[in-house]
Design a protein around this nucleic acid. Structure first.
Length: 516
RNA sequence: GCCGCGUUGGUCAAGGGGUUAAGACGCCUCCCUUUCACGGAGGAAUCACGGGUUCGAAUCCCGUACGUGGUACCA
């Protein structure tokens, strides 16, 4: 066992969105930077929201990102179980909750949901819109603090539905050190008596996180900023149950924000960028219930995992240098919790695409060739000559931001352009040019060898002979071969598609241009 | 309402008492290229506000504003 043990604890209730993946990533980078273990534990205590397949989905996302856990329900490990539902079976949560009751730090509460609702509406005022089950109100409720021991025992014996709540002490200040924010202080009077053990016997997050971290010997705990307000509950639980000296070090990560406020799952369809790492086939997480429109995940959108973790790592952390492109290994080597921001960061899709563009340029074509090939095949273009395919990708990679761009940028290498941008040709098209091309077809037919230099030479030779500037002819030629004003140098394209296709495309285009 | 956390260009951000306040994305101009990109050179644009402390504040302190989170038998 390593001395550093960092855990990521997702709940299998929804897709892995940007904030979630960044939390994993920071956990992982921190652990690996310190030579420690990265542990994934599943928090499946909320059965009502549990979604089948969600757990597998989480691991699929991690795998795509290149993150392999050292311990997890899928990978095994010595400190299992790695699912809370399984630890519940072992009775640990109940055991510790009972211990807290016995020691006077918690109590049984028999209030029904209706009674709780009544309390909240009865005590609701303008100054206090959401009354809490706290030291002000707990003596007005139905619990083992207000009931006699005999009645409590009777209710318990009768199997009355009940929960166990923490009894927040009065007048204490709980403080702890956050690795990112420094000392955080909270007054216990302002925190409510959180439920620790639910009526179904499942722990709430508050109990589970403490018990699990203790049992799994976790040394460092990263989580989102939204946990900060309940941190004093967890600190208190550590103090009562296992001792503060055994408590892991905390780091509360800043939020990732969307174009307006906190990034939500809806923002994907709203603003047209992915918010999830991957699509989730079992329950399409990006689907907008209203429009039934699916927002693709980063993977499906055509991001490279290298770019994805890179851009995510830089959203809230930087190395303190001007470097922005990092491999996973570099991130591990350079990651430092001291350089994580405390303020939230707004996600910028334009910058995200820039990262991917850089990675497409930076990586060797062969490392993503297969993904592009699959893309081509899904559009009905089968690739037979792998070597040629790789060459073509190399030719157009500078022009591609997302993987699907490869299709648009190189489809003309494989098939004749479906439409020609005639508007680009029309204004300057004339009979001289038409004559040039019919003449050039002859020259092409007589060409000994088919290579860039030869093609270009014959083109320029004939142009000079006809007294037309070669540049004026290159543009129409490009439209003929490509369909539009884009792509690598024309003669390179001509060479790649071959003599027959070149001549065919010129002939075809000449017909179309005839009506201009 | 109360409590927590935050605030350097439109965005990501460096800088943490003296700087012409880095760099990147995006935007604009120019060069390269008779295509589109890539590449190169420039440009516009910033310390939320108000008080202190100090010879001197983006930087330290206090307020205010704004943002965001929590205030569930959700995590």
């Amino acid at each position: 066992m390593s001395t550093i043990r960092v855990r990521f604890a997702p709940s299998p209730t929804g897709g892995l969105h940007l904030g979630g993946v960044r939390t994993v990533l920071y956990n992982y980078l921190f652990a690996k930077n310190k030579g420690g273990d990265f542990i994934v534990r599943i928090e499946d205590t909320d059965q009502s929201r549990f979604v089948p397949g969600a757990e597998q989905y989480i691991f699929d996302c991690l795998k795509w990102c290149g993150i392999e856990p050292d311990e997890s329900p899928l990978h095994g490990g010595a400190y299992g179980p790695y699912r809370q539902s399984e630890r519940k079976e072992q009775g640990f949560y109940k055991k510790y909750a009972d211990q807290l009751v016995m020691e006077g730090h918690a109590y049984y509460a028999f209030d029904t949901p209706e009674e709780l609702e009544k309390m909240r509406s009865d005590f609701k005022t303008a100054e206090n819109p959401s009354p809490q089950y706290d030291h002000h109100l707990r003596m007005k409720m139905k619990n083992s603090l207000t009931l006699t021991p005999a009645v409590t025992a009777q209710l318990l014996a009768a199997g009355t539905r009940h929960v166990i709540r923490i009894k927040m002490p009065q007048g204490e200040t709980v403080s702890f050190n956050d690795m990112i924010r420094g000392e955080i202080k909270n007054e216990t009077d302002l925190v409510d008596d959180k439920v620790l053990l639910k009526a179904d016997g499942m722990p709430t997050y508050h109990l589970a996180v403490v018990v699990d971290d203790y049992l799994m010997k976790i040394t460092h705990a990263f989580r989102g900023e939204e946990w900060l307000p309940s941190a004093p509950v967890h600190v208190l639980l550590w103090k009562y149950l296992f001792g503060l000296n055994k408590m892991p070090e905390w780091a509360h990560l800043p939020l990732i924000l969307g174009p307006s406020g906190k990034l939500s799952k809806r923002d994907g369809t709203k603003y047209g960028f992915p918010v999830f790492a991957m699509n989730w086939p079992q329950a399409p997480v990006g689907t907008d219930p209203k429009t039934n429109e699916l927002t693709e995940g980063f993977k499906e959108k055509g991001f490279l995992p290298e770019a994805f973790i890179n851009l995510l790592a830089l959203l809230g952390w930087n190395a303190g240098t001007e470097q922005e492109l990092f491999t996973k290994e570099e991130l591990i080597a350079l990651f430092s919790i001291d350089r994580v921001h405390s303020g939230g960061a707004k996600f910028d899709y334009e910058k995200a695409k820039w990262f991917n563009h850089e990675w497409i340029k930076k990586l060797k074509v062969e490392s993503y060739k297969l993904k592009v090939k699959v893309l081509f095949e899904s559009k009905g273009i089968s690739i037979s000559d792998d070597e040629k395919f790789e060459k073509i990708l190399e030719l157009v990679k500078d022009r591609c931001t997302l993987l699907p761009d490869f299709y648009d940028q190189s489809i003309f290498f494989f098939t004749d352009p479906s439409t020609l941008d005639t508007d680009a040709v029309k204004p300057k098209w004339n009979d001289d040019k038409k004559l040039f091309f019919t003449g050039w077809i002859n020259a092409l037919n007589n060409l000994q060898s088919w290579d860039v230099a030869g093609i270009e030479h014959s083109f320029k030779e004939l142009a000079t002979e006809k007294n037309i500037k070669p540049g004026e002819l290159q543009s129409p030629l490009r439209i003929m071969l490509v369909g539009g004003k884009y792509g690598p140098p024309v003669f390179v394209i001509a060479e790649a598609i071959g003599k027959i296709a070149t001549i065919n495309r010129i002939n075809k285009a000449l017909d179309i241009f005839a009506s201009l």
